[in-house]
Amino acid sequence: MNAPTLDKLRDYALLMRLDRPIGIWLLLWPTLWALWFAADGVPDLHVLAVFVLGTVLMRSAGCAINDFADREFDPHVARTQQRPVAAGRVTPAEAVRLFVVVSLVAFGLLTSLKNTLALALSVPAAVLAALYPFTKRWISMPQAVLGVAFSWGIPMAYAAVRHEIAWGEVLVLMAANLCWVVAYDTYYAMADRADDLKIGVKSSAILFGTRDRLLIAVLQALCLLLLGGLGIADGRGPLFFGGLLVAAVLALRQWQRTRSRDPAACFAAFLDNNRFGFAIFAGLALDHAGPWLASALGVVA
């Protein structure tokens, strides 16, 4: 393989943000919450593998179409001007083709589950992934569309595990995740607020104005309250609620860190939401594993 081809592959990897996996984690945590709730514990390993790999693929596809949509804006934002499309190393047509190819690979992976309902739900998932980047021109809070897109793995997880959707649980999980996504992506938008105002990109950070941190705190609190309510209804134990408590402490630290609204601090708070999502998943997984661990330890003793 010659050097130009290697360079092109490297640019494709950068276009898909494989060097910055934060987006993969933020998309994966709510999907894992849903899989564990739907399966009442560890899901089938085939289903788990498909959803983990599918999350990587769909986040990668979303980044490709995002950079196509933002090709006129990214060169004017300091943090994004070296992205492959903005810098001219990947053409807009190549970005679209990459989105289509990666999305089709994800769809092919999903077909291995032989689950018609999950396959049907994958179509709006792809539409939402393609639509979100363009909403920054149309609506004042595109983060809400991102929240729906990042929540669509939840009904898909229930469909894959149960072959039906328990809409009561699913809608609570989606609402909780929607609140969380808008909260952390507002931190992200706060880091770019000055540049976005100059180039005319809309965001929740601009919409919220001086109430940005207050509304982020409210949204994170709503997320945790909704998850707590679902945990009570589902009969979850202290380990699950301990995970929610850890997430609350992390949210408080993010809020304190961003008092100055310094862009670097806001971006750091955005990144810290990986630990927020992990804390919730760890509490849920440990809570489900608790009886098994107690039994195993009893046998060993």
Rank of each mutant, 00 (worst) to 15 (best):
G147T: 14
G229N: 10
L215G: 00
V161P: 04
A160T: 13
C223Q: 12
L225Q: 00
G237F: 05
I165Q: 12
A247N: 11
Y187G: 11
F240E: 01
D212F: 03
A217Y: 02
A144C: 10
C223K: 10
L222W: 13
M156F: 03
C179L: 00
L239A: 04
D195V: 04
P142Q: 15
L219R: 00
L222H: 01
D185V: 09
I206K: 14
V181A: 09
Y184S: 08
P142M: 05
A144D: 10
C179N: 06
A159R: 06
L146I: 07
M174G: 01
F208V: 03
V249E: 04
L215A: 00
I139H: 08
C223E: 01
G229M: 07
F240I: 02
E164R: 11
R193T: 06
F208Y: 14
A248D: 02
D192T: 03
V172N: 01
P238I: 07
A221H: 11
V172D: 08
A160Q: 07
A183T: 10
S151E: 07
V218L: 12
G168W: 15
V172A: 15
I139K: 09
L207C: 00
A175H: 04
F241R: 01
D195I: 05
R211N: 06
V172H: 12
D195Q: 11
F240D: 00
K202D: 12
A166H: 14
G153V: 00
K202T: 06
A157K: 13
S140I: 05
R162P: 06
M141N: 07
G209W: 05
W152T: 07
L239F: 05
G153K: 09
D192R: 10
Q143W: 13
L178D: 00
G229A: 11
C223W: 03
I216C: 10
H163S: 15
I139Y: 06
L173E: 05
Y187E: 01
L219T: 08
L230I: 07
Y187P: 10
S151L: 03
V246Y: 01
V246T: 04
Q220E: 10
P155I: 06
Q220Y: 06
M190K: 11
A149W: 01
I199K: 14
L244I: 15
R193L: 02
V182I: 15
V172C: 02
A217I: 06
L207P: 03
D192P: 12
G229C: 00
I139L: 08
D212H: 10
V218H: 07
A149S: 13
R211L: 01
M190E: 13
V170P: 10
L214K: 14
E169G: 08
F241T: 05
I216T: 10
L222S: 15
M156V: 01
I154G: 07
N177T: 11
P155R: 03
I165G: 01
E164L: 09
V182F: 14
V161K: 09
V145C: 04
A166Y: 08
